[in-house]
Write a protein that binds this DNA or RNA. Structure first.
Lengths: 353, 353
DNA sequence: CAATTGCGAGAGAGCGCTCTCGCGGCCGGA
DNA sequence: TCCGGCCGCGAGAGCGCTCTCTCGCAATTG
């Protein structure tokens, strides 16, 4: 670790303190502090003097000192425990971040993104987050029963999840209606006359993966159709996994007439495989994705998809966290956002039978 | 802003202090502190007592307090001032982050990603960074003459840039040999017999954009070929801009026989346009990209590209920053990494003339 | 056996800030 | 003119930690 040398750096070593600003402005430290905390009880005269002095000294309040006394950092962490390649490849995250940023910007709260890449990283991260570096934590893309949210919650850190946690938990979360969305997608396929409908699921250690499979099932059962395990093939939400899963499904069931994919990116992969196999979409096989991400309109044919309000999910997560911070309540809230089926060419009225 | 209520939260309100741990362990605060700072001067007996007490109380050191006295936060910021859609869409960033993380993980330093989305965000960010939230700052994807790095540097914050800054500056940076890489790409095209070589440049407010254009120019001039302004078309490194730029170039010069693209993603866009225009690659037009990202091997035909060691760039940035922190020196270092041309089908020996 | 060394441990001083408390001056009302 | 009230300000305590200084005790040495 770098040592006490740091202290001698111009970095913090020479940076001016409130005391110096106060002296230069000819007021007490308390009054100078009032100026920076936007306290109303300061005369315009004193305020101006302090501001001029601060400008002259290029003063910036020391956050550590402020945090130490207020117990507040004015920043919140967004934790995404995904390999970087996934994090940056998936169109889900930018939209989520946009929603979150929107809300936080208005509150002058800094968003910091944290990307644990290994178990070691995650341990360190737990320390970082419980040590008061952030006022609260947003977390998405949980796999399995990641214990981090619950442990943070127990420690008293405010946590809001995106996507329901695996096990029941006291932590607040925002989720979309994955079951309902998947069900509507499959019901649509059935309504279009499809009968041999497979699914490429998401990771089954994630709520979104499980729930979308559930919705698929519900619709098939209601219609009295077959949706046994041979009709499922898991993917990891990535394009290649979609292509591979599609191939596996075709190997098992060459007569499929539809496939529901738990993400658009996997659906794009599935389309690649179908093209390679000379299957016409939607004539031979109809495809529906999930997310309604930008990729849905750039595939050939364009992709029917279940739209989920990802930006809104981000906004709602941020709102929930800020509300918890404001009220001092610990959570246990859950918000479910509705989804909406968007029908495009990949499941359109194909020239079928 | 959320107010003093926060203080009453279990969050920090009830979290145990070093004092309490020391009392429970039957030692002084100083000795307890020694245990957590891994100081050697503590007996095994005392160490165990403190560790047990800490475990029992679920003690986590308060970082703000520690930072206040050490002047150190053990975390560094990575600033990427790009719209989220770009940040997450570009294969450059995950590779960079991977390289950075690799180095930082070994040093128990936390990486926090900061993504200013607007001028307001950036102002706030400057405050955040100068206020001592991080020990140092890594910054990439600078546009124009972004004043942030210089201002942070002036304030005494250690900054390392990825990619050279627009204007001359005292800030340290790591860059790849963009000029040399571009030159070798174009020299290769010339060696393959191409004579009417256009370029799709990157944003000309970025060092990488300017330098790759420069390399293109150098090679053409050396060979006595035409590379006037009508042969350039700027893009933004994104796929769509590549497609549009290719179209613009073809409109002006239907007889082009090669194009050098300043990024693989733009090259992929260019390939889309060429396909739509029924131009054969490489027979009619040879294409070379830049980055040698994963997309280069998944296009049809596969893409010749200039490989830049992005992970290494991340590692080197992190190393430079840590070295600066360790030594207390402020910077002014520059590291240039070599590039390497990778020839694939898009510029292969086409059936030409 | 006395003198010296060395090592573990405690006391205490801050790091830079916020916030409570109390004081003095100025206002308006009687 | 006098007095209560309010408002702006300063004094001072302390947030939780690290680190220096010092001390006491045991081991080592002449």
């Amino acid at each position: 670790m770098y040592k006490e040398r740091v202290r001698a750096l111009p970095q913090n070593g020479s940076s001016p303190t409130l005391e110096e600003v106060a002296k230069l402005a000819g007021v007490s430290r308390a009054t100078a502090s009032r100026v920076f905390t936007a306290s109303p009880k300061v005369s315009p005269r004193a305020k101006r003097a302090v501001e001029r002095a601060a400008e002259k000294l290029r003063y910036v309040p020391n956050r550590a000192a402020r945090t130490l006394v207020t117990g507040r950092t004015d920043s919140i962490g967004l934790v995404i425990p995904e390999p970087t390649a996934f994090l940056f490849g998936d169109p889900f995250f930018p939209r989520l971040v946009r929603g979150i940023s929107e809300v936080l910007s208005r509150r002058l709260v800094q968003l910091v993104l944290l990307m644990p890449q290994s178990a070691g990283d995650e341990t360190r991260l737990e320390g970082y987050l419980s040590a008061g570096h952030v006022d609260g934590v947003l977390m998405v893309s949980l796999h399995g029963n990641d214990p981090l949210p619950d442990r943070l919650h127990e420690r008293g850190t405010l946590v809001v999840l995106g996507g329901r946690p695996g096990a029941s938990s006291a932590v607040s979360y925002v989720d979309v209606d994955n079951v309902g969305g998947a069900r509507s997608a499959v019901e649509h396929l059935i309504a279009m006359g499809r009968r041999r409908i497979a699914t490429i699921t998401g990771p089954l250690d994630m709520g979104a993966g499980v729930d979308r499979l559930q919705g698929y099932h519900d619709a098939l059962v209601k219609a009295g159709l077959n949706g046994d395990a041979s009709m499922h093939q898991p993917g990891d939400f990535g394009q290649e996994s979609g292509a591979a899963a599609m191939q596996a499904l075709l190997d098992r069931h060459p007569d499929l007439d539809a496939v529901f994919c738990a993400s658009d990116v996997m659906a794009a992969g599935a389309l690649d495989t179908l093209r390679r196999q000379r299957k016409r979409v939607p004539q031979d096989i109809a495809v529906v994705g999930f997310d309604d991400s930008t990729i849905a309109t750039s595939t050939a044919p364009t992709l029917s998809s279940v739209r989920q309000p990802i930006e809104e999910m981000g906004r709602e997560m941020a709102r929930l966290l800020l509300a918890g911070l404001d009220s001092g309540t610990a959570g246990g809230k859950r918000v479910i956002l509705v989804t909406e089926l968007v029908v495009r060419a990949s499941s359109g009225k194909g020239v079928r039978e």
